[in-house]
Simulated scan of single mutants.
Amino acid sequence: MIRPAAYSHAQKVLHWALFVLVSGLYLLTYAEGLFPRGDPGRAWVWWLHISFGLLLAAFVLARLIVRLAVGVPEPDAVANRWETRLASLVHGLLYALLIALPIAGIILTWARGDSLSFFGIFTIPAPFAADRPFAQQVQEIHAFLANAIIILAAFHAVAALWHHFIRRDGCCAACFPAQ
C-alpha cells in the first residue's frame, strides 16, 4: 500500500472528535460529585457518560477502519530514529487505551447490573447478573485507563506543540489542513 502524503480529512475529524469525547467523558465523571447520592441528576450524569462512551467506541472503530483503508503518512524524514520509535509507541498505546477504555466501561456497566443505553435510542441489557465486588475491580481498572489516556494524550499534545512551535520541523504538517 502506498502511504498518503497527509492524513485524510476523515482521519483528522475522527482524531479531534476522539479528543473531544475522551476529554468530555473524563470531565463528565466529575459532574457526579455535583449531586448527592440518590439524586436523579447523578443517574443522568452516568446515563450521559455511558451514551458518550458508546459513541467513543463507535468512533474508535471508525478510526481503525479508516486507518486500515487509507493508511498513515510516512514518519517525518527530519525526525530522529528515537523520536520515530517513541511516536510509534505512544500512538500504539493511545490506540490500545482507546480500545480498552470503552470495553472496560461496558463490562463495568454490566457488572453493576445496569443496561447500556445509547441516548435512549437503544438499550442492551446486562448479559450476566450484577457482581458488585467484580464491578469495583473493573471500576479501578477503568479509572486507571482513563487517567493513563489523559496523561498519554497530554504527552502527545506537548510533543506536537514542541514540534510545531519550537522545532518548526514540519512534523505535524500532515496532521493539519494546508494553509
Rank of each mutant, 00 (worst) to 15 (best):
A6V: 14
G92D: 07
L93A: 13
I150C: 04
I65C: 04
G170W: 07
R132L: 15
H15R: 07
L145M: 11
G92R: 08
V70L: 06
A77D: 15
H49P: 02
I141N: 08
L145I: 09
I50A: 14
N147W: 14
N80S: 12
W46E: 03
A111D: 10
G24Y: 08
F155C: 08
G120V: 01
I99K: 03
H156E: 09
S8K: 07
D39Q: 00
C171V: 15
E32S: 14
V72N: 10
P125F: 00
L152W: 01
L93S: 10
L152F: 01
P102A: 00
I107Y: 00
V138A: 07
A43C: 06
I65H: 00
Q136S: 11
F134Q: 15
V78H: 11
R81S: 11
V90R: 12
H49R: 07
W44R: 15
I150E: 11
A10G: 05
W47Y: 14
E74K: 04
H164M: 07
L64T: 06
S8W: 01
N80I: 02
V66N: 05
F19H: 06
G38Y: 02
G170R: 11
V66Q: 05
F122L: 12
V45F: 01
D131M: 08
A129I: 07
Q11D: 06
I166G: 05
A130D: 04
S88L: 15
H15I: 02
P102H: 00
L98I: 01
A57P: 13
I151D: 08
P40E: 13
I149H: 04
R63I: 04
A31G: 02
G71T: 10
R168M: 10
D39T: 00
L34K: 10
L21P: 01
R67H: 08
W46D: 00
I107K: 02
Y26V: 14
A69I: 08
L145A: 13
I150R: 08
A153C: 10
L64K: 06
L68Q: 15
L28I: 09
